[in-house]
């Protein structure tokens, strides 16, 4: 795991001096690669005429009108809040119930545990329609429609399995001898979990949290079916800007930018946890 070993592997990019030039090339390629995203951000500051120009315009007089119209006049601030609330609730519940379950599964070798884990994976494969119609009916029957319950429940169908699998692989990397030692020292089962094991998997929990938040924030289909007027999240609200009296591309770009910005910043700040999360399941288990 040291950088020295990298020198042993063949270097497809050649010597270091060449790689300086290549770095510049990569920068250009990187900007090109992100151009769809950058273009949307640019578009959000354009007026109608500049947007509809059949020759793309890179220079234009920037305007904040799109943001003002979307967030001050068209109520997208509410959707922004809804997105936040749904993501936080989902993540909170998923961690609360998923982390202890993951710990227990990591310490048990029973067949049942294995089946349970596979069941969780299978749950991830359920088509959205199979889940959303019953959840909708259930929420209605329980008198819970019109609030966040149904959509949060739907988001739990992917965030709990994710949390369990992810955290299990982090817990597996902690030798069971450690908890056994702590048990002998007189900690109860809960004590071991909270005082010994959890602090050791802070990184894993951070990674899991980040992924749960992003996945819930980004989810569209469940939210489309299961949210109402007061609970619609940003992705659900954006398509309402395509209307018979015109498509408000400027506002779409503005709302799109605001939807993407928090997670982009967030991802930048907690980058190492995201990488840990992505690779955690693949690299640390087995």
């Amino acid at each position: 795991m040291t950088t020295t070993q990298a020198q042993v592997r063949p270097n497809p990019l050649g010597s270091r001096s060449k790689s300086a030039g290549l770095a510049f090339l990569l920068l250009v390629l990187g900007v090109l690669y992100l151009s769809p995203l950058l273009w949307m951000v640019l578009t959000s500051f354009k007026n109608r005429v500049d947007i509809f120009s059949s020759t793309p315009r890179l220079t234009f007089a920037p305007t904040l009108d799109n943001y003002r119209e979307a967030f001050q006049e068209n109520g997208f601030t509410t959707n922004l809040l809804n997105s936040g609330v749904v993501a936080l609730l989902t993540t909170g519940i998923a961690l609360l119930v998923g982390v202890p379950a993951a710990y227990q599964l990591s310490r048990s070798k029973s067949k049942l545990g294995g089946i349970y884990l596979l069941g969780l994976l299978a749950a991830r494969l359920l088509p959205a329609m199979v889940l959303s119609v019953p959840l909708f009916v259930l929420a209605t029957k329980l008198g819970l429609s019109g609030n966040y319950v149904a959509v949060v429940a739907a988001h739990l169908t992917f965030s709990i399995p994710f949390t369990v699998w992810m955290m299990r692989s982090f817990f597996l990397s902690i030798p069971p001898s450690l908890d056994e030692a702590a048990l002998l020292d007189g900690c109860g089962e809960f004590g071991v979990f909270f005082r010994v094991v959890l602090p050791l998997t802070k990184g894993g929990i951070a990674a899991t949290t980040v992924f749960c938040l992003i996945n819930s924030w980004n989810e569209f289909l469940f939210a489309l079916v299961l949210t109402g007027r007061d609970t619609a999240t940003l992705p659900v609200a954006v398509p309402t800007l395509l209307t018979p009296i015109g498509t408000f591309w400027g506002q779409i770009a503005a709302v799109g930018t605001v939807t993407v910005l928090p997670i982009a910043l967030f991802a930048f700040l907690v980058q190492k946890y995201i990488i840990a999360g992505m690779t955690g399941g693949a690299l640390s288990s087995d």
Binding site: Y33, L37, N218, F220, V238, G256, V260, A264
Partner: peptide, 15 residues
């Protein structure tokens, strides 16, 4: 990281 964490619906709109 950016392309894969950006909201898929917004990815659609970007394109």
């Amino acid at each position: 990281l950016l392309p894969m964490i950006v909201t898929p619906l917004i990815v659609g709109l970007m394109f």
